[in-house]
């Protein structure tokens, strides 16, 4: 019978939102499923499981990755930040307030993925033009907002943070 043994486990250690964890993981488990069900981080949303929509974007060693395109064992000795970690970080209050002000979310399903991609951009401390922001966010799909609110929110946060005019 050609079946997969679901009882195999690998031991991994990793940092999840600044907490050091050790877990037994199934070798074939998607990172997105592992984070959502074994670690309880359901803010990571799964939208396509083939790397297109960006809803499951997390930070892995401070780089944005699709958690649906990684297997759980791959994070051994690595650092993961999910939306739950981001939400505890008051550094990003400005971004959350801008999202509310510019109605940058409707159903909210894509929102954690967008926020994760955006904080990666903010950490690079670059002041991007509208077109550059649009390019950088083109790997995250939103079906509700038509993107305008998201672009405006990012634009305002960048302008305020990097002390340049919003009209640059």
């Amino acid at each position: 019978m050609k079946t997969y043994n679901d009882n195999n486990r690998l031991k991994i250690s990793f940092k999840l939102n600044d907490e050091l964890l050790q877990k037994q993981v199934k070798p074939r488990q998607l990172l997105s499923d592992f984070l959502r069900f074994d670690c309880g981080m359901t803010g990571t949303h799964v939208g396509c499981e083939h790397g297109i929509c960006g809803a499951c974007t997390i930070l892995f060693n401070n780089e944005p990755v699709r958690s649906c395109l990684m297997l759980a064992p791959q994070i051994d000795n690595g650092e993961i930040t999910t939306i739950e970690g981001i939400s505890e970080n008051s550094t990003y209050n400005d971004l959350r307030e801008a999202f509310k002000k510019y109605h940058a979310l409707q159903c909210g399903y894509c929102t954690p993925g967008f926020l994760t991609t955006i904080i990666y951009l903010l950490e690079k401390k670059q002041h991007l033009s509208d077109e550059e922001i649009r390019k950088k966010l083109s790997g995250n799909i939103c079906r509700c907002t038509g993107y305008t609110g998201i672009i405006k929110a990012v634009k305002e946060v960048m302008a305020n943070r990097f002390k340049r005019s919003i009209n640059d």
Binding site: T82, S87, K100, L105, P112
Partner: peptide
């Protein structure tokens, strides 16, 4: 401003797939 936003921005929304 929307009352829904706070939970959704912080990963505290609860969609059906999040329920176990």
């Amino acid at each position: 401003l929307r009352f829904e936003d706070e939970r959704l921005l912080n990963g505290n929304g609860q969609y059906t797939a999040d329920i176990n």
